[in-house]
């Protein structure tokens, strides 16, 4: 399958400072690709190069096989994007703002504008000035603006920034729908794993302008998949004995907690066994993926994410 977007050995230097170093990855149609990294990692800079706002120092970005460098118009016509904040003309109402961008591309009817407006649920706000919109409404306007021309690649730079959990869930729903129903390749950047983990198929992690890793995301853990379980119990020693009696498991004691690696479906049995044998269970936590650990390693302990 041809990638919807491909980064090939991408570099960016500003002055003597190398901001992006040898970035390469591909994103495929119908895929939601997370672009994760701490603040200052170079996410926005990479996105600016993807959409031609910044010149590429070396390497290339290809959109459906067309180079942004050599054929900007041919490449960019398939792209919709929000770069950094979703900025609009504050003195114009929502409709006029969308109409403005619609005029810059061929064949966008009023019908189509109404369609994207209803997709992001802003019908009631169209007559209001954008300056009065909440951050969430502006994020949605940004998405509407990016979708007008039915792009095959959608780039969203920190679309969950400043949104409450309900807003994030809503955005996650549009994004999944676009990817699954319209085969759009979506790139979502964020500095918070928790905000994009649930919407992405794959997540790349970058730090200091370099790619650290690209990982598949297993969203809902399968029943027969092994997860690491931590239990806060009392008394600890009795609990360990009870578990080892019923299951063939290696149980590790950490102060007042126990940890073990089990399949998801055995968790209820373990808890049931403990309760029956009069052990107090205070907390059960699972660590699902290795992604969190990797991201934590990258971010470091003292970084405010």
């Amino acid at each position: 399958m041809q990638p919807a977007m491909e980064l090939v050995n991408l570099y960016k230097s500003i002055g003597k400072k190398q901001i992006i170093k040898n970035l390469s990855f591909s994103i495929y149609p119908g895929e939601v690709f997370g672009f994760l990294g701490p603040n200052g990692a170079g996410k926005t800079t990479t996105i600016r190069m993807m959409v031609g706002l910044m010149k590429i120092t070396s390497g290339d970005v290809k959109i459906n096989g067309t180079s942004v460098k050599n054929d900007f118009k041919g490449a960019i016509q398939h792209v919709g994007a929000i770069v950094e904040n979703p900025e609009m003309y504050p003195f114009m109402n929502g409709w006029k703002n969308l109409k403005h961008y619609a005029r810059m591309m061929n064949g966008i009817t009023d019908e189509r504008i109404r369609e994207v407006v209803s997709l992001v649920g802003l019908e009631k706000a169209m007559k209001e000035k954008v300056g009065k919109y909440s951050l969430g409404m502006r994020q949605r306007m940004g998405i509407a603006q990016a979708l007008l021309h039915r792009p095959s690649v959608l780039i969203l730079d920190e679309p969950t920034n400043g949104l409450d959990p309900a807003g994030i869930r809503e955005i996650r729903q549009y994004i999944r729908r676009l990817a699954e129903q319209e085969q759009v390749a979506v790139i979502v950047s964020s500095h918070l794993l928790s905000e994009i983990e649930l919407m992405c198929d794959r997540i790349s992690i970058i730090k200091n302008g370099e790619l650290v890793t690209v990982e598949e995301v297993q969203n809902s853990t399968e029943k027969d998949e092994r997860v690491e379980v931590w239990l806060e119990v009392e008394p600890v020693d009795k609990a360990k004995a009870v578990i080892e009696k019923h299951h063939e498991l290696e149980v590790v004691v950490h102060h007042d907690k126990l940890s073990m690696s089990v399949t998801k479906e055995t968790i209820p049995e373990i808890v049931k066994g403990l309760v029956q044998d009069q052990v107090n269970v205070y907390e059960v936590t699972t660590k699902s993926s290795s992604l969190e650990d990797k991201f934590f390693d990258v971010i470091g302990e003292n970084t405010i994410a």
């Binding site: 959409v51 031609g52 706002l53 900007f72 118009k73 041919g74 960019i76 016509q77 792209v79 994007a81 770069v83 950094e84 904040n85 900025e87 609009m88 003309y89 961008y101 810059m104 591309m105 603006q145």
Partner: peptide
Amino acid sequence: GTIKLLFIRP
């Protein structure tokens, strides 16, 4: 900040 949205059109 709208310059970004102007410049990413064909």
